[in-house]
């Protein structure tokens, strides 16, 4: 009996070690609305912006204008863009799985490249700002920042996701 108890305790003890080796990302997603408000407020030079998000009824089809990644891999997002079509754009996507972040980052970069090409053909004065756009990854979040005060907006992003 005592042997069995000892062996059982030892096995449990070993299992505890194993379970410490890998930590799952279990932090809840931050509010996309709050994050959007924070980030947009960080740049007071932004023009009139329109926004869509994962809260919208047709969120999945609207997401397609930002990325071609399978929407089922996305936990939440918001996309804010200039109402008049100028090169101002702020977006954050929260992935369900951190392993899908690189693919999302790549698709957002592809989106930016497309915007640059559009401006190059029709609104060349918008190209410089678009070329300075940054795509930032933090944990399972991918952020696109295209505006004049990108540093401030990125700072707000980092604070907002903590």
């Amino acid at each position: 009996m005592r042997k069995m108890v000892a062996l059982t305790l030892a096995a449990v003890f070993v299992l505890c070690f194993v379970s410490c080796g890998k930590k799952e990302e279990t932090e809840p997603m931050v509010s996309m609305y709050d994050l959007r408000v924070m980030m947009l407020a960080a740049d007071e030079t932004l023009p009139e912006m329109k926004s869509v998000s994962s809260s919208d009824e047709d969120a999945e089809s609207l997401f397609g204008y930002l990325s071609d990644v399978d929407y089922s891999k996305v936990e939440g997002y918001f996309l804010s863009y200039a109402a008049e079509g100028d090169s101002y754009e702020i977006a954050v996507v929260a992935m369900r799985n951190a392993g899908d972040v690189p693919a999302m980052k790549e698709s957002v970069e592809k989106h930016v490249a497309g915007r640059i090409e559009l401006y190059r053909n029709y609104k060349p004065e918008q190209v410089p700002r678009a070329e300075e756009a940054s795509v930032t990854v933090s944990g399972r979040y991918v952020a696109l920042v295209m505006c004049d005060r990108a540093d401030a907006v990125l700072e707000a992003f980092k604070k907002g996701i903590k």
Partner: peptide, 12 residues
């Protein structure tokens, strides 16, 4: 996944 901020200028 924890990469630094990426600027696209050189990669466009």
């Amino acid at each position: 996944v924890r990469k630094k901020v990426l600027l696209l200028t050189d990669r466009v």
